Computed example of a mutant assay.
Amino acid sequence: MAKLDQNKGSKLQSFFFIIVVPFIFAITVVLIILTIRGVDVFDYAGKIGNKIPGISNVVTTSNEADHARKTQQLESSLTSSQDKVAKLKQEVDGKQAEIDELNQQVEKLKSELDSANESKKEKSSTIKEVAKSFQEMDEKSAAPIIEKMDKNLAIQVLEKVPSEQRGKILGEMNPDSAASITNSLLAGNSQ
């Protein structure tokens, strides 16, 4: 029995040394020669491996690896771009809210300005009517009334009165009051 095991061992060794080792050596030499000649043996083997049904799942070609790598890079780039777009959308929304708020302020200021202009027109109209009343009055009656009025209002009224009538009214006023109003009238005209 020991002899039988030795025969099996020696047959296996013989097969290995006679067939397997020379086959591996031959394949190595062929690979070296083909590589020196410029043939991409592994790429070619991958293409052939992809055509064989069971092996195609295991073997990946360099094109497939490049494709997988590029796909992964593009997916990461897409994710990065989507993050940037989301941040920019948030900024746009914030800026739009700010613009809306500023537009509301502009509308409020416009309405205040319109209201102020309307009030100014009404005041101007009232001043014109008062000035017309003073034109029709006797200067002796008008002078004491203008002296007792607010100085700014008196100046506005006298600006609307014709200069001849204005002079007569100022002539009937207290000299200090008349001088003060005249100075203010001249200062207003020089501006």
Rank of each mutant, 00 (worst) to 15 (best):
K160L: 12
E91D: 11
G9L: 13
K89S: 09
R166V: 04
E136H: 00
V58W: 03
V39F: 13
V106H: 09
L185M: 03
I127Y: 08
M1Q: 12
I55A: 06
S10I: 13
Q6E: 15
S77M: 15
V21L: 13
L170S: 01
F16P: 02
E75K: 02
S184K: 03
I127H: 02
S124L: 13
A131Y: 03
Q13S: 13
I146W: 00
G46P: 01
A154E: 06
L158E: 02
K87Y: 07
P175L: 08
S141F: 02
L153D: 14
S76T: 13
A179L: 11
M173L: 07
I24N: 06
P162W: 04
N152Q: 13
P162E: 15
K70D: 15
D176W: 02
S76L: 13
S115K: 09
I48P: 02
E118F: 09
S133F: 00
S10D: 11
K132W: 08
G46E: 15
V29Y: 06
T126E: 15
S141M: 07
N189H: 07
L170D: 01
I48Q: 12
V39I: 12
S125L: 14
I33C: 01
Q191V: 05
L102V: 09
R69Y: 09
M1A: 11
I19W: 08
A2M: 10
I24M: 11
P175M: 13
S14A: 13
K95F: 11
D93C: 01
K70H: 10
A97Y: 02
R37H: 05
N7Y: 13
K8I: 15
S177P: 03
P22H: 03
E75L: 08
Q165L: 06
S80Y: 04
E164Q: 10
K168A: 10
G94Y: 05
K160T: 10
K84I: 14
D138A: 01
I27S: 09
F17V: 06
F15L: 14
F15W: 11
K87S: 08
P22E: 08
S177E: 15
P144Q: 06
D43K: 02
T60Q: 10
T182D: 04
Q135E: 15
N183M: 10
I32D: 06
T28L: 14
F25P: 00
G54D: 04
Q135R: 04
F134A: 03
N63P: 04
V161C: 10
A97L: 07
A97G: 04
I99M: 12
F17I: 08
N103W: 07
T61P: 03
M137R: 00
S111H: 14
L153G: 07
R166F: 02
V92P: 01
V41Q: 00
K110V: 14
L109T: 05
L4Q: 12
K120I: 15
N7K: 14
M149D: 12
V21T: 07
I99T: 07
N103F: 09
S133P: 01
N57M: 09
S124I: 08
G167T: 11
F42W: 07
A26H: 03
I55M: 04
A65L: 15
N57T: 05
F42P: 00
A142R: 00
N57C: 02
E64N: 04
I48W: 11
K121I: 11
G38L: 06
I146L: 05
E64W: 01
K51N: 14
E118C: 05
V21A: 05
L31V: 10
R166H: 06
A26T: 09
S119Q: 14
K160M: 12
A26W: 09
E164K: 06
G38T: 01
